[in-house]
Design a protein around this nucleic acid. Sequence first.
DNA 1: AGTTTACTGCGCACGCTGTTCGCAGTACGG
DNA 2: CCGTACTGCGAACAGCGTGCGCAGTAAACT
Lengths: 236, 236
Amino acid sequence: MDRPPIWLRPERAARGPRPAHSRAEIAAAAVRVADAEGLTAVSMRRIATELATGTTSLYRYVDGKDELFDLMVDHAMGDGRPPAPTGDWRADLTAVAHEQRALMLRHPWLVRLPATRPVLGPNTLAWLEATYAAVDVPGLDADEVLAQAATLLTFVRGHALEEIAELEAARGDQAAMSDWLAKQAQYGERVIGSGDYPHLSRMMLEAETPHAADRFDRLFERSLGHVLDGLAAHRS
Amino acid sequence: MDRPPIWLRPERAARGPRPAHSRAEIAAAAVRVADAEGLTAVSMRRIATELATGTTSLYRYVDGKDELFDLMVDHAMGDGRPPAPTGDWRADLTAVAHEQRALMLRHPWLVRLPATRPVLGPNTLAWLEATYAAVDVPGLDADEVLAQAATLLTFVRGHALEEIAELEAARGDQAAMSDWLAKQAQYGERVIGSGDYPHLSRMMLEAETPHAADRFDRLFERSLGHVLDGLAAHRS
DNA sequence: AGTTTACTGCGCACGCTGTTCGCAGTACGG
DNA sequence: CCGTACTGCGAACAGCGTGCGCAGTAAACT
């Protein structure tokens, strides 16, 4: 059959009965489930039940589970709005970075999904547009704009990925968290004791960041500063 | 039961018969399947069949499928060796970045797995150690070392993620690739025509990078340069 | 040497998954 | 007012991860 991507298909067909649900409705239901119970709870049957419809009816709206994921990603991207541009590129990019990170932390499943395929829904495009708008100034080469925006977005996504991976390893639960930290400490001792990782050991022993409660906030702030400094070197 | 993480468990138990397989053997089989047929082909039954053993025997080696994935990740990380340090931090980090990217492109499933949980096997640690070694110089604050290494690795992972997502959307196949590009172009026209995305449109029309065959190589090179410039600002 | 103990391999079974097919019902275009 | 192109959906299929319990085996202890 090989249908075109969902963003090119009209939501309502020319002929036939009016569909019982909208794409937004379906996406919202799936996002709700994923937020509350994790990505694994999102199954075709489950979302259909959530919408009080038959399981296979979903396939009238979506070409398969991957497209349901596409809808979810773009819907979640609409949860936060790109900040209005102020004209100060550094402030604007900082705002984009913080908003994007917050958005991903609010929907932890988000960083794992677009790994499969690029999603190009309207909300995702709006974020892209906002990032380009912040980077773009008259006289700056288009390829340079592209590279700078990619550098920032790529960094933010990568950071959120690792942050969320660690958060989920501790399962968010406080008891599980300290359990996990204890296991980490035990493993850390073995790593240091082995003598194979001198620099790693120095970091474990000397760095303060890993022990702070807000370590990811601090690390993000610092690393983001580095990235922006790198961009600054290539603008006027 | 709540067993400790696999890296803390001895491979061979004190008592009982000698296990028929080694962890390395299992990891290698799973990596082989994932490389050849994709992550979805990696199932407990499939790997067991590959090892000519019973399906549930695998559970004697691994606490569940997630731990099988852990083994795979660390095994794949051993596919490339961290480059030997030369003393030039910028050259060393560039080498690490290129090697890591190449490694992830060789095992495209790799970027998707650690999203779930942090993997801390010996090969992964070796890479971390090499990165710290490149960044670390006497007199540099440990927290600064941590931040700089995180910035680089995070960026590389993020870049590989997007690169692989696009590669897989085209399914590697040449015919499917041009099909996909045609769809993209069609969508691009609509995006430009809508007038909602002026900067995005400018990029599509003016930038050269997106149309080049080696666009990801170029983008990576340029963005990596930006990141390294950012780090340079915080050293001596 | 004999016994105890802790392990290994593994068949069975359960509940779940994504997706294809075909059929009855419905609203719009001509 | 008919034909056509759609919608909703139940049944069915192949495949998934994994808990349970049992027989066999090798090391440790007496």
